[in-house]
Design a protein around this nucleic acid. Structure first.
Lengths: 337, 337
DNA sequence: AGGCAATGAGAAAACGCTTTCTCATCCGAT
DNA sequence: ATCGGATGAGAAAGCGTTTTCTCATTGCCT
């Protein structure tokens, strides 16, 4: 048992030597080029197998001008939404032999541009989730980043597809659901103010308000995580609202937990909705009424769009809209009075 | 406004041409080599800036023999545990200028070996989470994969550090906690039978049983996700146990949800514990008593160990054990009788 | 039997960078 | 004034592949 790991990695030259051919021939064999004499081909394959040869991907990438890798930039890897996008993307890409490189900007929006550029240079394409980046910067960056697909953002650069979730539509439907249950005082527990997706929700609610003048709609500043929801309990109770539209499922869960601590019953005393339908939403107590976003599928779709770009296939529409679907569960019920 | 994106990527040669020097000099300047005349250096830097030149990482990697990238192989990107490891790893690595490439084996253990090899070849090091891989295969693979660090596995290959969570210890402490509350009939809702970490829990429980002959300990086959927990409700209720040690938080949450549907009160009628202390555990109703594993920190630690290996720094102990810490919350209470 | 197309494999260039090697230039010292 | 040692930059090799170019060999056809 020699210490083989001390040895330098074996390369194409070693195989060529062992098989008594040139490295060109080895390369041809490894790539299934048919212009090689079958006898020689098997000889090469045997040598390769014996030496356990695996082509060096870096050399390969340099010669081929592609890395078979795509990058994804996310603002926060702790957020279930981005985890799900990543998962969908990764699995779909893997199916086509692509790997994914992740770049977590940790919510530092100034990092996003740099990370995106670095990731892009190492990869054949990019999926960009940059909810906080300024429009101007995005616009400026876009050309140098493609092939790229944007999540929940758009740009005027026509070659950059966008995958959008219609948060406005979703939140309107949730609000309608509450109205149908007889609620007239609704509270919106908002997300981060600079978030693009929060803006869409606000727009949706403005439309909703316009169509329902009789409904009293309040906004309370929140955030995007448990703590925000948990910390908003007092404000929510003080508001007098009979129902709450939380920014997302995380916020809703924090709120649910806080309400339970206060002895406030859901949905008897107050109704609560989330947004996203993360895995956990189904298992809260009570199970959370929410707007389901097919987010893993969005990740997969991101890959398909990116793949089309990489392969230079004629593209479909620039923007692809995902409609959230209301999932009525136990956290919403008839208004108290 | 030319269509710059149509143009070939600009390379070191373009900068050299523009600055009127050789590409060697450009390279020297870009890498901060001090043996370049300051006047020329600035000229080069200006040219580089003007052309917006960024070195091609692939060429760089080939020349340098390193990619500044590490890989991580996970069995399931949908599992919060691996998400947290990934997060910790990614952030820690980013701090040192490394990126991470992910390989999701989708629980297909036959894929693990191949994925690991491929990922390793593209990267400078590997973090391997392969709970289902056979010992023999792991042993065989280990030498060819290093530098590598293992999560919750060990190998005889001394140069491969292991980061272990002491599941045995954790589950014992949870059981002790239940005993202190007066429980004498405890159910263990087990994880996947081929999982290494499940085996550790079973071992821990055997020790526990040896020290507490009076306690009746039952095992029920479960799984590792919500559905497993939710589906085990009947079996749990039929068992007559007054408390349940769930394989992990996900299973516990599924169980909690199922019990709630049945109108069984937690912890009044039955106590439930989880394992891992994922983010969500704190916000279930009631909040989940669990054994907290500092999993994000484990991810960070994985990077530090891997970094030491990559830098060839003398390593510390081969295996690094993380002790779970019992977090008592609302899902456990005194035994019913 | 001789010539020509086809076949198949080696030589060499290319990918984009880093780094060693080499050499011209300049300075100070003798 | 000449030599020697720095200094600094270009030439070229190397990293590990793929692929084009080139050429030797084979086999077929006339």
């Amino acid at each position: 048992m020699g210490r083989r790991s001390t040895t330098r990695r074996i390369g194409i030259a070693d195989v060529a030597l062992k098989a008594g051919v040139s490295h060109a021939t080895v390369s041809r064999v490894m790539n299934g080029n048919l212009t090689v004499d079958p006898a020689i081909a098997t000889r090469v394959r045997e040598a390769a197998a014996e030496l356990n040869y695996q082509p060096n991907p870096v050399g390969r990438s340099l010669a081929l001008g592609k890395t078979d890798t795509i990058g994804i930039v996310v603002p926060d890897l702790a957020n279930p939404t981005f985890q799900a996008i990543l998962r969908g993307l990764s699995r779909a890409a893997a199916r086509d032999g692509y790997r994914v490189l992740i770049a977590d900007s940790s919510e530092v929006s100034s990092e996003e541009a740099i990370l995106a550029g670095e990731a892009r240079r190492r990869c054949d394409g990019l999926v960009l989730c940059a909810p906080r980046m300024g429009d101007a910067e995005l616009e400026e960056l876009a050309p140098s980043l493609q092939p790229m697909v944007l999540i929940n953002r758009t740009t005027t650069e026509s070659r950059v597809p966008s995958l959008m979730v219609d948060y406005g539509q979703g939140i309107q439907e949730l609000a309608e659901h509450l109205v149908e249950l007889g609620h007239t005082r609704i509270v919106f527990l908002s997300g981060p103010s600079r978030s693009a997706s929060n803006a869409l929700r606000v727009q949706g609610l403005e439309k909703f308000q316009a169509g329902h003048p009789g409904i009293e709609l309040q906004m309370i500043d929140g955030g995007s995580n448990f703590e925000a929801g948990h910390g908003a309990v007092d404000a929510v109770l003080a508001s007098g609202g009979t129902s709450v539209l939380a920014f997302n499922d995380l916020v809703a869960m924090g709120l649910l937990s806080g309400l339970h601590e206060r002895g406030v019953r859901v949905p008897e005393d107050i109704s609560v909705t989330g947004f996203d339908d993360i895995q956990f939403a189904r298992y809260t107590t009570p199970p959370l009424t929410t707007a389901a976003v097919p987010i893993t599928e969005l990740g997969a779709q991101a890959w398909h769009r990116l793949r089309a770009l990489i392969r230079n296939e004629g593209s479909q529409d620039a923007v692809n809209i995902f409609r959230p679907q209301v999932e009525v569960r136990g956290s919403t019920g008839p208004a108290k009075n």
